[in-house]
Simulated scan of single mutants.
Amino acid sequence: MPEHKTRNRITCDPDENKVPQKDLYIYYLKGLLPSGATDSADHFLGNWEEDDYSFLFFSRPSDQFVDEKISTLPNIQLLDKYEMTYEEWHGDKITTLRVNQFIIIPPWERKNQNMQSQDEFEIILDPGLVFGTGTHPTTNDCLEALLTLWYGAEIESILDLGTGTGLLAIAAVKLGCKRALAVDFNLLAAKTAYKNVCLNGLEGKILVVHGRAEELMDKPSDLMISNIHYDVMKNLINTEAFLNFRYFILSGLLRSEAKSVADQLKRLPVKILKTWDQDGVWHTFLGTTINLY
């Protein structure tokens, strides 16, 4: 298994007007490819790594390349391959979306004129192959939590753990946050997030890092956002660094997970300001730490 560097700053050169590929050809592999393994691939779109598995995305069938590459890597095994449209991969068409006061616009639909009114915030977002377009209930709740917090608190810095497409970090800066650190352990997600930072012209305010949430919890910020796997989140809450944040948003929790998190929070000097419950399935917490000194 290749060694992961855990604190890599991401850079890229986004193509603002690129329309997503209509068809996707996906190769599901057991094992992680070494760095540079796909550099010579034609029509390659990206590699999504999850635990000890890889998903290679191409815009055209690439059986020959994948077979040849696997033949040189004894620890890599092809498990399956899929063909689907870009819209099928995301579950719906990627189009302009209004969520509360945010207008989330894919770059290929961006008009020359400004679409936002005086009390709205425009976000240019290209999800690429990464989930996090604003349609998921937990993302909606996090955006609402940001709005709730901003109208009653002064937030100058945030730490966004499990940033995905970078949507929440971008939304926070659009609201007036001066600086944000956006972190994702998935390299493809981190690259996608930085592309969206560039599309919104926020390179000077948002730093995107490829790294582990656990290793970046000590970065001082007014607000910590964690829309991340429960197994990671429960460990973050148990760290001393958790109580250094003035505010926190915890999301992406199913009912049983939310109950466990609520029990954890009851044992800490924190106050829950608001909770969201989407049809009894997805749960989000907005809270503040209590200064005991």
Results as ranks from 00 to 15, higher is better:
2 P>V: 14
3 E>I: 15
3 E>C: 03
5 K>V: 10
5 K>M: 08
6 T>M: 14
8 N>H: 01
9 R>E: 15
14 P>S: 07
18 K>A: 11
19 V>L: 14
19 V>D: 02
22 K>G: 00
25 Y>A: 11
26 I>Q: 01
27 Y>N: 03
32 L>W: 01
42 D>R: 12
46 G>M: 14
46 G>F: 14
50 E>H: 06
50 E>P: 00
53 Y>L: 12
54 S>R: 05
57 F>V: 03
57 F>L: 05
58 F>N: 01
59 S>L: 06
61 P>V: 10
61 P>D: 11
61 P>F: 13
64 Q>K: 14
65 F>C: 06
69 K>G: 06
71 S>H: 14
72 T>P: 00
72 T>C: 11
72 T>F: 14
74 P>F: 13
77 Q>N: 10
77 Q>K: 15
78 L>A: 02
79 L>Q: 04
84 M>Y: 01
87 E>M: 03
87 E>A: 12
90 H>G: 10
92 D>G: 01
93 K>D: 07
94 I>E: 02
94 I>H: 07
98 R>G: 02
100 N>F: 08
100 N>G: 14
101 Q>V: 08
104 I>S: 08
105 I>W: 04
107 P>D: 10
110 R>P: 00
113 Q>H: 13
117 S>L: 13
119 D>N: 15
119 D>Y: 08
121 F>C: 03
121 F>V: 04
125 L>S: 03
129 L>C: 02
129 L>A: 02
132 G>I: 00
132 G>D: 04
134 G>L: 04
137 P>T: 09
137 P>L: 09
138 T>I: 04
138 T>Y: 04
140 N>V: 11
142 C>E: 07
144 E>V: 01
149 L>C: 01
152 G>Y: 03
157 S>G: 05
161 L>K: 07
163 T>E: 09
167 L>K: 02
175 L>I: 06
175 L>K: 05
176 G>F: 00
176 G>P: 00
184 D>G: 09
188 L>T: 01
193 A>T: 09
194 Y>W: 15
194 Y>M: 09
198 C>Q: 15
199 L>F: 09
200 N>E: 03
202 L>D: 05
203 E>L: 07
209 V>Q: 10
210 H>V: 06
210 H>L: 13
214 E>I: 13
217 M>S: 00
217 M>G: 01
220 P>W: 15
222 D>R: 08
225 I>A: 07
234 K>H: 03
236 L>A: 07
238 N>D: 14
239 T>G: 01
240 E>R: 15
242 F>N: 13
246 R>I: 00
249 I>N: 12
251 S>K: 04
252 G>D: 06
258 A>I: 03
259 K>P: 04
260 S>G: 03
264 Q>S: 12
265 L>Y: 04
267 R>W: 00
270 V>C: 08
270 V>L: 05
274 K>T: 00
276 W>C: 06
279 D>T: 11
279 D>P: 00
291 N>H: 12
292 L>R: 13
